[in-house]
Amino acid sequence: MADPYDRRTTVISRTVTRVVVPIILVTSIALLLQGHNLPGGGFIGAVLTATAFVLVYVVFGMDFLQSRVLDVSADEDEYHDLVSGYRWVFGAGLALAVASGLVPTVLGAPFLTQGVLFLEHLPLYGELEVASALAFDLGVYFTVVGGLLTILGEVGNE
């Protein structure tokens, strides 16, 4: 029996998408995590994550994205729950980004002052540097992913 999600694309595009999407997602996480020390960060990582979702949507369709990737049924009410979930991710990311900037002011430092914590004697890593800028990058990441997926969901439903 033919898969209903293979309706309008070629085998090549479906195969390339299945190979490329995990690579895009791993690259986006790598860019997110190196953002406070090297070029990259929350914005570019989020754009890459949204690009992976857009690629799945274009090749397989919104129904596939909802039912197979995000595990949500394609009913009309479920669609609104999905978009409201994207909006919740947007709001949570915005709150995290603002909170990460306000915490230093509560502690008497200027807005968005960065602090660094060195974790030592870790298995496999030895020493790990954790900067407070990572919280801001995570907030930006969730804000951009939530915003772009909301747009994708709204436009894709049209």
Rank of each mutant, 00 (worst) to 15 (best):
E120Y: 14
V116G: 05
G93Y: 08
P110F: 10
L96E: 03
L107A: 09
P104T: 06
G101L: 11
G108A: 12
L112T: 12
A95P: 14
L117G: 05
F90Q: 11
G93H: 06
Y86I: 04
G126N: 03
V103P: 01
Q114H: 08
E129S: 13
P104A: 04
A97F: 15
G101F: 10
W88Q: 15
L122H: 04
E120L: 14
G93R: 09
V106A: 02
Y125V: 12
R87T: 05
V116E: 12
Y125D: 07
W88Y: 14
L117Y: 13
Y86C: 05
V116F: 11
V98R: 00
E129H: 13
R87S: 06
V106L: 09
V89G: 01
G101A: 01
V103R: 02
V103L: 00
L96F: 03
P110K: 08
F118L: 11
W88G: 09
T113I: 10
L102A: 05
G115V: 06
R87G: 06
L122C: 02
A92I: 14
T105N: 04
V106E: 00
R87M: 15
V106G: 02
A97K: 08
L107T: 02
T113F: 05
Q114Y: 10
G126V: 03
L107N: 02
E129A: 08
L119D: 03
A109W: 09
E127Y: 12
P123W: 14
E127K: 13
Y125W: 15
P110D: 08
P123D: 03
L94Y: 03
F90R: 09
G108K: 00
Y86S: 00
V130F: 14
F118K: 09
T105S: 07
P123N: 02
E120H: 12
Y86A: 01
G101T: 06
G93E: 06
L112P: 00
S100P: 00
L122Q: 02
G101K: 00
V116A: 06
A109K: 04
L122E: 01
T105P: 03
L107S: 05
A131I: 09
G91A: 11
L122K: 00
R87I: 15
F118S: 08
A131Q: 13
E120D: 08
P110T: 10
S100H: 01
P110C: 08
G101P: 00
L117Q: 13
E127S: 14
A97V: 10
L124D: 03
L117E: 10
F111R: 04
S100V: 15
L102Q: 04
G115K: 07
P110R: 11
T113E: 03
Y86T: 03
F90V: 07
